[in-house]
Protein backbone atom coordinates (compact mmCIF):
# COMPACT_ATOMS: atom_id res chain seq x y z
CA UNK A 1 0.00 0.00 0.00
CA UNK A 2 2.44 2.67 -1.16
CA UNK A 3 0.98 5.83 0.23
CA UNK A 4 3.43 8.24 -1.33
CA UNK A 5 1.96 7.92 -4.84
CA UNK A 6 -1.40 9.20 -3.67
CA UNK A 7 0.11 12.10 -1.78
CA UNK A 8 2.25 12.93 -4.82
CA UNK A 9 -0.91 13.21 -6.96
CA UNK A 10 -2.81 15.17 -4.33
CA UNK A 11 0.13 17.50 -3.78
CA UNK A 12 0.44 18.14 -7.50
CA UNK A 13 -3.24 18.89 -7.77
CA UNK A 14 -3.19 21.39 -4.92
CA UNK A 15 0.01 22.96 -6.25
CA UNK A 16 -1.57 23.44 -9.67
CA UNK A 17 -4.71 25.04 -8.25
CA UNK A 18 -2.68 27.37 -6.02
CA UNK A 19 -0.44 28.39 -8.91
CA UNK A 20 -3.52 29.00 -11.01
CA UNK A 21 -4.98 31.30 -8.38
CA UNK A 22 -1.70 33.21 -8.17
CA UNK A 23 -1.57 33.61 -11.93
CA UNK A 24 -5.19 34.77 -11.98
CA UNK A 25 -4.30 37.54 -9.52
CA UNK A 26 -1.50 38.62 -11.86
CA UNK A 27 -4.37 38.57 -14.45
CA UNK A 28 -2.44 36.21 -16.74
CA UNK A 29 -4.55 33.28 -17.97
CA UNK A 30 -2.38 30.07 -17.65
CA UNK A 31 -4.01 27.38 -19.80
CA UNK A 32 -0.66 25.63 -20.25
CA UNK A 33 -0.28 25.24 -16.50
CA UNK A 34 -3.42 23.14 -16.23
CA UNK A 35 -2.32 21.04 -19.17
CA UNK A 36 1.15 20.49 -17.68
CA UNK A 37 -0.35 19.48 -14.34
CA UNK A 38 -2.73 17.00 -15.92
CA UNK A 39 0.04 15.51 -18.05
CA UNK A 40 2.37 14.96 -15.11
CA UNK A 41 -0.35 13.35 -13.00
CA UNK A 42 -1.43 11.23 -15.97
CA UNK A 43 2.11 9.86 -16.28
CA UNK A 44 2.01 8.75 -12.64
CA UNK A 45 -1.47 7.26 -12.99
CA UNK A 46 -0.64 5.42 -16.20
CA UNK A 47 2.28 3.73 -14.45
CA UNK A 48 -0.18 2.70 -11.72
CA UNK A 49 -2.60 1.33 -14.30
CA UNK A 50 0.24 -0.65 -15.88
CA UNK A 51 1.09 -2.17 -12.52
CA UNK A 52 -2.60 -2.98 -11.98
CA UNK A 53 -2.89 -4.81 -15.28
CA UNK A 54 0.25 -6.84 -14.52
CA UNK A 55 -1.20 -7.88 -11.16
CA UNK A 56 -4.52 -8.85 -12.74
CA UNK A 57 -2.76 -10.77 -15.50
CA UNK A 58 -0.70 -12.70 -12.97
CA UNK A 59 -3.61 -13.41 -10.60
CA UNK A 60 -6.25 -14.35 -13.18
CA UNK A 61 -3.94 -15.77 -15.92
CA UNK A 62 -5.93 -13.60 -18.31
CA UNK A 63 -3.61 -13.39 -21.30
Amino acid sequence: MDVDVIFKIAGLGILISVLNIILKQADKEAQMLTLAGVVVVLIVVVQLINELFNVVRSVFHLF
Binding site: I6, L12, S17, T34, V38, V45, L48
Partner: peptide
Protein backbone atom coordinates in the same frame (compact mmCIF):
# COMPACT_ATOMS: atom_id res chain seq x y z
CA UNK B 1 -9.39 21.10 -10.52
CA UNK B 2 -12.08 18.44 -11.16
CA UNK B 3 -9.78 16.39 -13.41
CA UNK B 4 -7.17 16.13 -10.65
CA UNK B 5 -9.84 14.83 -8.26
CA UNK B 6 -10.75 12.18 -10.82
CA UNK B 7 -7.12 11.16 -11.25
CA UNK B 8 -6.69 11.04 -7.48
CA UNK B 9 -9.73 8.76 -7.13
CA UNK B 10 -8.42 6.61 -9.97
CA UNK B 11 -5.01 6.32 -8.32
Amino acid sequence: RPEMALLLALG
